[in-house]
Write a protein that binds this DNA or RNA. Structure first.
Lengths: 295, 295
DNA sequence: GTTCCGCATGAATCGATAG
DNA sequence: ACTATCGATTCATGCGGAA
């Protein structure tokens, strides 16, 4: 039986990526630190310099990604002095110049977004999920993310069940279950480019950049088992966990020791549960640590 | 009592707009021809030349818009040779250079988007609603678009016929005058920047670029009664109708004689409906008007 | 006056074929 | 080689007529 690997690195992803072979990754899913002048916690990048900060990194991503692989970038510009900043638009244009194809822009609709009220705008309840590719031909396994006809939203099923209930009761009095199951068993439909996902506010660990379902969906869509998924801004490791659960190899990089340690610990706990072989794991861990330290 | 005016013009909006005074419009809501789309009706603009085609028009829009007014632009880039085209991104950057503030990007989630299946992408179910302003201080009446919490309201509003809407709005202008008392005790919330609306498919007349509810929402949000709404790419006149129903003055421009004639005709018909039913209507309405005033 | 069912249609996109 | 046209694929929704 094949084994699944999770390689976790501590360091600046731009530098860590340079140590990788080219064309070794099937999918990149990441949510880089957002531009923010005021905050310094996670290397808050000046919006004006965001593109020039990101382009050297995406240059390495371009190198390590396979030609039929995909790069998913989760990003959203903040409002700055009453305006939406334009660095994301400029980033898309810059990435195309760098050689990326801008295949698609998915919308992540955040159903229970952060509450708030401002005089000049409503709550921001969506983010961009930009899809980039190296060529026009890339792997896409659409059947893996098909949804029941009528959309995945609960509202659809709820509405139908209400209608079905009335109709069936009028007909024979016992057909309620039958009708609902008809809908559930109907052929599946392909989703659209709008994803309806709730933000996970009660995350046990830390505030995740995106909900588990998000990387999960893209991993299912763009990779198969034993492919390799990379998240160069790993954070709390949501992408890594989803990849592991779906039997994909994964590579995570983060510059923050807390995140590095946390994901290592999580990985270890999971593997202990699975294999109960502490010794083997320790040696592997030390090796990875050394690789990261070399940088 | 003040009167509401609808001025409909036939011609190229860039030229027609030049005849207007400056700062005479409170809100612009429009959906210009997308590049290469609707080639049968409009000329179809080369995507590469889209920005240079639009900028002279938006220059006039900048002139006629009041300093506290808003410009809402509905647009979406098409997929071209496996990629999303970048002309919309470039347009946003160009508009900012022209002096516009890019205040916000709303998402129109099209619940019933066009079906189809392709190897490299899913169905496109969203469009951009770009908000531009002349200054950071602009009129925004957030309370006018508050929505009741829960789905209860949806079915209620759907059942209002077009004539009901006209009558109600003509009378009290607060929108949805019918069963106003039912609304009073409902908990309301501010909406977000994601709008969930279906395209209107089975229209008897002509297909509208966007559903009635779309301009209606922005007109309520950014104007008050007797303000002036402009649609320089009027089409079948959805924006004009919504403005009239909400007691706003309106200006519509279109280069196609069919659309010009159609909107002129519709405007007349609506006025007749209102006039004929005036007596019956008055008695019924006075009560509701009072209820509305008490709120 | 309601509720329910049938059905036409929509700012789509790709790839093959034709000029 | 490069552009223009056409066929294949696919699904949620609201309208109109019927029960």
């Amino acid at each position: 039986m094949k084994e699944i690997k999770s390689d976790i690195f501590l360091g600046d992803c731009k530098e860590v990526l340079k140590t990788f072979d080219e064309s070794c990754v099937d999918l990149i899913v990441t949510s880089p630190p957002y531009a923010d002048r005021r905050r310094n916690t996670y290397g808050g990048i000046d919006p004006e310099k965001y593109v020039e900060w990101f382009i050297p990194i995406s240059n390495e991503l371009l190198r390590v990604l396979k030609s039929d692989g995909t790069f998913i970038l989760n990003i959203k510009e903040k409002a700055d002095e009453g305006e939406r900043h334009t660095y994301v638009l400029e980033l898309i244009l810059a990435l195309r110049k760098q050689g990326w194809f801008w295949t698609e822009e998915f919308i992540w609709h955040k159903k229970n977004c952060y509450p708030g009220k401002w005089p000049n705008r409503f709550r921001d309840s969506w983010e961009r999920l930009l899809q980039f590719n190296k060529t026009r031909k890339f792997n896409m396994y659409q059947n893996e993310v098909m949804v029941p006809v009528g959309d995945w939203a609960k509202g659809r099923l709820k509405n139908l069940s209400a209608v079905d209930k009335i109709r069936d009761n009028a007909k024979n009095g016992s057909g309620f279950g039958k009708n609902v199951s008809n809908w559930l068993n109907r052929e599946k439909a392909y989703p659209t480019n709008v994803l309806h996902l709730s933000t996970e506010c009660n995350n046990k660990n830390h505030s995740a950049a995106f909900p588990y379902a998000l990387p999960e969906w893209f991993i299912k869509l763009f990779t198969k088992e034993f492919d390799t998924v990379l998240d160069p801004f790993m954070g709390s490791g949501t992408t890594i966990q989803a990849a592991k659960d779906l039997k994909r190899n994964s590579i995570g990089i983060d510059i923050m020791p807390e995140y590095y340690g946390m994901v290592k610990r999580q990985t270890k706990e999971k593997e202990l549960v699975l294999f109960e072989s502490k010794v083997k794991y320790e040696t592997r861990k030390i090796k990875k640590w050394n690789i990261a330290k070399k940088i």
